[in-house]
Simulated scan of single mutants.
Amino acid sequence: CEALIRDFKQQDNGLLGIRVEGGRRFRVREAGVQKDQLLVADVQWLQELPDQPLGEEDADLLALLEALAEHPMVASLDMGGQAEGQQALSNQLAYLLPFNEADKIDLLQLDDPGQRLDAIQLLLDELQGELFI
């Protein structure tokens, strides 16, 4: 997705710290590297499906997000730990949970937030199964 710069400041180590918020989603059609090493791409902007309200079936995942929000590292992200609909809940969990990069990409490529929540639950079930083997 596009990254919208929301805040920035110079860090003590001299690096620039940037806080971004995800914006519109897209698919990369073609990508390349310019002579100055700048990455450029031709993208297709994706239409978002209308967000669906959270239902009873989402209660456990919402509780998980609220629990994650209490962790100091997550709290420092200032994400709020709240979700108004399935889109926000699925996006925040996909970002915060310790899934591997390929799984995160697969999740975020799903257009339907309800399907994304179902896929997150399956990944959580797999993680839980691995912990008890």
Rank of each mutant, 00 (worst) to 15 (best):
N91T: 09
Q52E: 10
N100I: 10
L54M: 13
F8C: 07
I18P: 12
V33R: 13
G17W: 14
P50M: 02
L107H: 00
L93R: 12
R6K: 12
L97D: 08
L122R: 09
Q82C: 05
L65N: 04
V28E: 06
Q92V: 08
A69E: 01
G17R: 11
D12S: 10
N91K: 11
L110W: 02
D12Q: 10
D60H: 08
V74G: 03
F132T: 10
L46W: 07
G129C: 01
L110Q: 14
L108D: 01
D111W: 05
N13D: 15
L15P: 01
D111H: 05
R25G: 04
V43Y: 09
P50Q: 10
N100H: 14
Q82P: 04
L93P: 00
Q86D: 08
C1W: 09
D42K: 09
L15Y: 11
G81D: 08
L110A: 12
V43L: 12
L49I: 09
A63F: 09
V33Y: 09
G85L: 02
A88E: 15
V33T: 09
G129E: 10
L97Q: 11
G55C: 12
R24Q: 11
L46I: 06
L46G: 11
A3E: 13
G32D: 13
F99Y: 08
G32C: 03
I5R: 11
G23K: 02
N91P: 02
M73I: 13
V40G: 05
E66A: 11
L61T: 01
N91G: 06
A3R: 06
P113Y: 00
R6E: 14
L93V: 09
L131R: 11
E2D: 14
Q10F: 08
V28I: 12
A41R: 02
P53K: 03
Q82G: 03
Q37H: 14
E84D: 10
A83L: 06
Q34K: 14
D58G: 11
L77I: 05
R27W: 10
D7S: 13
A83I: 09
A119S: 15
L49K: 06
G129Q: 12
E48G: 12
L123E: 00
E101S: 08
G32W: 14
L97E: 07
G81H: 13
E66H: 10
I133C: 06
Q44R: 15
N100E: 15
R19T: 14
Q121G: 02
L4C: 02
E84Y: 07
V43W: 02
V74P: 01
G81M: 06
Q109E: 07
D103Y: 02
Q82R: 15
N100R: 02
D125C: 05
I18G: 12
C1E: 11
L68K: 07
E126P: 08
G129D: 07
L64S: 00
M79L: 14
A88N: 06
V20L: 13
L110S: 08
P113Q: 00
D106H: 03
F8S: 15
R6P: 03
D103E: 15
L97F: 04
Q37K: 13
E130D: 14
